[in-house]
Design a binder for these strands. Structure first.
Lengths: 202, 202, 202, 202
DNA sequence: AATGAATGAGCCTTCATTCAT
DNA sequence: TATGAATGAAGGCTCATTCAT
């Protein structure tokens, strides 16, 4: 038994090491930006020699890409939550708390802003970001349609536009968390719930 | 006489040269980011020798700081518009078009995102951003209070929170312009007007 | 019995493995030069792990030395042909074809030039090259003396000098094959035969 | 007067600096090979910071190319000598001494062999070498034709082939100077003169 | 005020070599 | 015997900054 269960985890050693690098890179990128973080810093943070990182990643660019991928995937997984709900409207309004928390977490915000800034000039990163965003938004759109079906409602406003506005509102929080450190998150959550309800029932 | 008339032109010339550098830096920073842009690029774009830039700015950091200052000032000037209006509510709702245009301009967005990302890790930039944001938001708050006075309205929602939400919504557009290149700006403007009205009259 | 029959196969295996490495190294050195070829490339070409190569060779330098040894030995074996001939003069004149072919083969030329360039600065390689050359030239000298005895000829020209010139002529072909890709080998062979005959009968 | 004569040399400062780098590079390349020589070594030898070398050359490759160009040009200038002679045949036979000296100079030989080895795998270098060789050989060919006209001679052997053989013979000396350090240059010169005469009058 | 030559630290990356398994 | 993960010292190159002119 032992010898059977031992092998798989060991063969994932490489995956573990890759994770080590990505975790270290995330920290360094957050603190210094993609271009400000050096491979030496990353390798020290990862507890690995600079040379060895290149066994797992082709270049610093590849690490950036992997970080962006992983970060956006985490964001996307987050969208799944709402799918199986009976009362989508209520679930979404309730979900605002969670969304506000996530997007005002300074660490999350810092890395995400770094990604956004990079995507404004790095086409490869931009492509990844756009693809991820497209998927997220499509899910949200599907959800809204499903929700309207639940209520038997009809809207004069394009669903796509609603999702654009909603996601812009949450994206904007990333900046607010830096702009305004004294932000009253609870009060904001209450207000955003009202706006969310207003937009969804428009 | 001489000493009076001589000095101003010279300092004007210096100001002009500083502007030259900042204009060049803005272009370079937009295209390559703060860390990706080199002093050599900036000096070439500015039509000035690299060495001479250091007569006007102590360091690259100082140029970044100056760019941030200038960019945020421009944004702030923008807020003035609403102040003198007779029907503030209407003026603000009408102003949405303008705000959407400004924040979905890719060039503007790129530099502003760069500033935001930098402010997440550079305390000096963060301070500037926060100060600028504080002033903007205070103005907006004053405006909303004035507007409520115009209407004789009373609100259960803290005005500060309203401005947080409104500014988050516009900030979010900076990202949307990168996320979603096929954004329907007109439809979005219409929807944002409704939300704006909803929030202001809440 | 056991200890006798066991050992040879094992040492054969080792010899085979060493050969594998040298064959791979020859290819890599030809294509990238001694310094341009990496141990990783060699190990991949040899179908062997990089670490294991160090069981057979102390260092990359040692591989270079071994390659040089082997390559020069192959060249030297080549000289044997003329030894047992009845009409040495004719055999040598006829052998020109073969010599031209060998020294204008681009792959041969590349490795040999690499060796020559290295020997101009690596004393260990230089020693090997000089030793090999000395043996070759001595053989050639012996041959010429034997040939003159066959004819009962006497020459005013030092035999050593003749062999210097003849070998220089063939060495020079290594470069011609790179200099002049449109080289007319057949016509050159004819001319070289005449020169060879002229020198030998001088 | 002074201010006029002073300026030109100063404006050639860049050319001087380029030369400095090339001279240093030639030394380093000779001693360590193109790939064995480091930019740090070259910069130290040139008495210049590593970074500053890149004001004059785009890359190490560019320095290699420049070295190859310069070295081959020097070789080519050498060919000019024979052009204006009244008795070309005699001049060429006399020139052998000079040719032997040049091609058995160990420093010259080392760099030229390095160039040849590199050209066997670096297409850019190969192209330069071939072009230079083509020009040299064309000159030699023209010379031989002119010489035959002087004598009113006719030959059954293609002139091009003669030049191939002659240049191969001299190229071969580059290797001989490394192979055989005890080479008797004077005796070889005498023999080469005879061969030269034999080939030219064939 | 203005230049641009010059520096040298630091960056990303490669690679010969070692060692636990 | 054999692997390949791991190291760390260079290597080529860039760039913010200084300084003689």
């Amino acid at each position: 038994m032992n010898e059977i269960t031992m092998t798989p985890p060991e063969s994932d050693r490489a995956a573990q090491r890759r994770h080590q690098v990505l975790d270290a890179a995330a920290i360094c990128f957050r603190n210094h930006g993609f271009h400000g973080a050096s491979m030496a810093q990353i390798s020290k943070t990862a507890g690995m020699s600079p040379g060895h990182i290149y066994h797992y990643f082709d270049s610093k660019e590849a690490i950036i890409a992997a970080i962006v991928d992983r970060d956006l995937e985490e964001m996307m997984e987050w969208t799944e939550i709402f799918y199986s709900s009976d009362d989508i409207l209520q679930t979404m309004v309730d979900g605002v708390t969670c969304g506000v928390d996530a997007n005002t977490n300074p660490e999350c915000a810092a890395l995400m802003l770094e990604i956004m800034a990079e995507s404004a000039r790095n086409p490869q990163v931009a492509a990844t970001v756009q693809k991820s965003n497209q998927i997220c938004q499509q899910r949200l759109t599907d959800l809204l349609i499903k929700e309207m079906a639940q209520r038997g409602a009809v809207s004069s406003v394009d669903v796509q536009v609603k999702t654009d506005l909603i996601s812009a509102m949450f994206d904007g929080l990333l900046m607010k968390s830096i702009h305004n450190p004294t932000l009253d998150k609870d009060a904001l959550t209450v207000l955003m719930r009202k706006v969310m309800l207003f937009v969804l029932t428009l």
